[in-house]
Nucleic acid binder design. Sequence first.
DNA 1: TGCTGAACTTGACAACTTCTCAAGAATGAA
DNA 2: TTCATTCTTGAGAAGTTGTCAAGTTCAGCA
Lengths: 217, 217
Amino acid sequence: MNNYHRMAQPAAQSTSTGTRRERRKAETRARLLAAARTLFVERGYHATRPQDIAEAADLATGTFYVHFADKREAFQAFSEKAAQELMERVRAAGAESADFEQRLYLSLEALMAYADENPGTLPAAFTDSAVIAAELPQGASLQDQLADSLGQGLRQGMERGALRADADPDVIAHGIVGFVTQALRCGGKRKRARSDLLGEITRFVSRALVLEEEEPS
Amino acid sequence: MNNYHRMAQPAAQSTSTGTRRERRKAETRARLLAAARTLFVERGYHATRPQDIAEAADLATGTFYVHFADKREAFQAFSEKAAQELMERVRAAGAESADFEQRLYLSLEALMAYADENPGTLPAAFTDSAVIAAELPQGASLQDQLADSLGQGLRQGMERGALRADADPDVIAHGIVGFVTQALRCGGKRKRARSDLLGEITRFVSRALVLEEEEPS
DNA sequence: TGCTGAACTTGACAACTTCTCAAGAATGAA
DNA sequence: TTCATTCTTGAGAAGTTGTCAAGTTCAGCA
């Protein structure tokens, strides 16, 4: 019959501040996560050792393992946080317009802006995550999150009669995410101008999906 | 002034048979490669140790390193071989038709047939290869090979006036490869019927690209 | 046929990683 | 201040990758 955990608050409220200890622990974890991000981006997954992360956070190796079960988990935490940040940006940008093609364009623009502001992060987190996370994270890879978000949009468009409805919106959404990923990668390598790229991509997708009633000219 | 390598043949002809030693060496390498393939497919990259591969090929660890500089190189050899096999199948299937949409359909069918006949190979070789090969293999990932092949087709179609020509065929080709990859992955997870999937995918791409003069009804 | 040295093979081991855990330091309640 | 609990530490256990000196095989030669 142990009864530690005697706090002022009745329920186990672990969010926001908490006791000083909890705050410090959260801070320690945040320091580790920040160090992990820097190193994973700079050196890549394999060249970054847990002890490097701990040292960069000015902590001992053992502390790393208090906060993360293993190196993979730390990588996943980094990757998920980046995905979350990016999704927020993309969702906010896409919400600004009701027109499908324009929404897609704005979303892609937001994605590229994030990539610019956080150089190396997307490649580090999502080239590698395919292998590192491997089997474990059935839930929500960035690609799946983007596809789910897009899939919702497609479903709405189909119901409204704005988009062709003769295909599975989820399959199409995943396909489009794949299309965008590869097209941007290719366009980036060849140093195509960003606006041209975005234009070609959105046009391609629109032609496949949008039921145009009439076009001016 | 050393002059080993005195063979009957004048030039250094290293293909086909060669001397008995050469044949045995090639055979050893082939045994290692076969063992590597089995293990990489069964267990994945990380869970396969070079010594496991050597043992499965009934050879010692050191021999592994005579034929491959390191574990990555062995993986790359496996991955490249699989890509080559697949490309042959896809090219042969696509050559059977001149119509763009049908050619795409046949190519995808060939791709899926290969995946069926070699279960686990494609995921093992190309989920992982993104991370393992990582920076090194600028040349020809499977995705790039498929995209190059498709890009040629697109260019032809554009010149013939059969396809819309207002976008960079290479960017579009890479995009399509990404589309197919993700759409198939998603469709596979949801156990969609194969023919439906292929139909939806080819229809999507055709609508975006094909300049239809007139359709029967 | 037996000899020779180049090429191939071997496996113990060195170098390096990841992760653990017993011991010590810090914190907050009484 | 004292004590129980939690957090931190870093040496080292466990396990992997890649090396190399020594042993084995074989084509060419007399």
